[in-house]
C-alpha cells in the first residue's frame, strides 16, 4: 500500500471510532502530535508536583501533611505512566526530561505561578484538579488507546484528589474570617490562570488532534463544562470571582471573551511566567541530585559493590 492509501485507511478507521495502538501504522503527524500532547501532560504532572511540594511545610496538621504528600506521590506516578506511554511513540525518557529542562517542551500554565499559603492548596486541589479532571475525562475516549488506558487510572486518582481538595476548601469555608479570606485571596489570584487552563478557542479546521479524535472536545466546550459545574459551588460557599466574572446567561455560566486577558498565557507559552525559571531550576536540581539513582538503575551490577 502507498502512503496515501494507508493514510486514507487510517482516516477511515479513526473516523469510524476505531482505536489506535502503539504497534499500528499511523501517519507521522499523528505520532508526532500524540507524542507532544502526552509529553506535555507528563511534564505537567511532574512540574505540578513542585508547587504542592512547596506547600507541604504549610500543612496545618500532620494528617493534612501526609495526605498532601500522598497526592504529590500520585502526581509523580501519573508522570511515570505517561512518560512510559510517550516512550513507545519513539522518544526516550531522557530526551523528554532534558527537553523540559531546556525549555524545548511545555507544561501547563497553572504550574508557572507562585504559591503563598494553605489557601492555594485548597484552590489547586479543588478547582485546578477539577479543571484537570474535566479535560482528562474528555480524553478517556481518545483515539490513542494506550493513552486512554493510563488515563483510566489517572482519572480515578484525580477523583480522590478532587475530594481531598474540596475537603480542604470546605474546612476553610466553614472556618474563621481569616481562613475564608485565605481561600478568597487565593481564588482571586488563580481565577484567570484557571480560565486560561483550557486554552484559547480551538481552531477546529486546523487542529489535527481534534481531526484525529485524539482530543474529543474543543477548549471552549471544556471550559464551559467547568464553569457550569464549579461556579455555582463556589458561589454557594459565599466566595466571589474577580475578572473575568462569570455571569448566568440562560442556564450557562459564561465569561465574556473580551474580559479574558490572554497576555499572561502568551508569556507562559514562551516560558516567561512568574515562576517558570525558578520551577525549572528546582526541577533541574532534583534531576541532577538524583543522577546517581538513574545510573544505579541502568547498570546495577557496576554499582552494586
Amino acid at each position: 500500500m502507498s502512503y496515501e492509501e494507508k493514510l486514507e485507511e487510517f482516516n477511515r478507521r479513526v473516523e469510524a471510532g476505531d482505536k489506535v495502538e502503539a504497534s499500528d501504522w499511523m501517519p507521522d503527524d499523528y505520532r508526532r502530535g500524540v507524542l507532544k500532547f502526552i509529553e506535555m501532560h507528563a511534564n505537567s504532572e511532574i512540574m505540578g508536583a513542585l508547587p504542592e511540594r512547596e506547600c507541604l511545610p504549610k500543612a496545618p496538621t500532620l494528617k493534612r501533611k501526609m495526605s498532601l504528600a500522598a497526592k504529590i506521590q500520585d502526581e509523580i506516578g501519573h508522570a511515570q505512566l505517561l512518560y512510559r506511554v510517550a516512550e513507545d511513540l519513539g522518544k526516550s525518557r531522557t530526551a523528554m526530561y532534558e527537553d523540559l529542562l531546556a525549555g524545548e517542551s511545555k507544561f501547563h500554565n497553572v504550574f508557572h505561578y507562585p504559591v503563598h499559603h494553605w489557601g492555594d492548596v485548597a484552590v489547586i486541589g479543588w478547582l485546578i484538579d477539577g479543571a484537570a479532571l474535566v479535560t482528562q475525562a474528555a480524553l478517556l475516549d481518545s483515539s490513542y488507546a494506550p493513552y486512554t488506558r493510563v488515563l483510566k487510572r489517572i482519572c480515578s486518582e484525580e477523583q480522590l484528589h478532587l475530594r481531598h481538595g474540596e475537603h480542604i476548601t470546605l474546612q476553610l469555608a466553614s472556618g474563621t474570617d481569616y481562613q475564608r479570606e485565605m481561600f478568597q485571596e487565593a481564588l482571586n489570584r488563580w481565577w484567570l490562570p484557571i480560565i486560561h487552563f483550557f486554552g484559547p478557542r480551538s481552531n477546529v479546521a486546523k487542529d489535527l488532534l481534534l481531526h484525529w479524535k485524539v482530543k474529543t472536545r474543543t477548549n471552549e466546550d471544556l471550559r464551559q463544562e467547568f464553569l457550569d459545574r464549579y461556579v455555582p459551588k463556589v458561589t454557594e460557599l459565599g466566595f466571589s470571582f474577580p475578572t473575568p466574572v462569570p455571569r448566568l446567561k440562560g442556564d450557562a455560566w459564561v465569561v465574556a471573551a473580551e474580559d479574558i486577558d490572554w497576555a499572561p498565557l502568551d508569556a507562559i507559552k514562551k516560558n516567561r511566567g512568574p515562576e517558570t525559571q525558578r520551577r525549572l531550576s528546582r526541577r533541574r536540581a532534583v534531576y541532577d541530585s538524583h543522577r546517581w539513582v538513574r545510573e544505579a538503575l541502568s547498570e546495577p551490577a557496576v554499582h552494586a559493590a
Binding site: 511515570q80 512510559r84 493510563v150 487510572r153 538503575l297 547498570e299 546495577p300
Partner: peptide, 8 residues
C-alpha cells in the same frame, strides 16, 4: 495494567 522500564 501497564508497563515499566527496568534493568532487571
Amino acid at each position: 495494567c501497564g508497563a515499566v522500564i527496568a534493568p532487571d
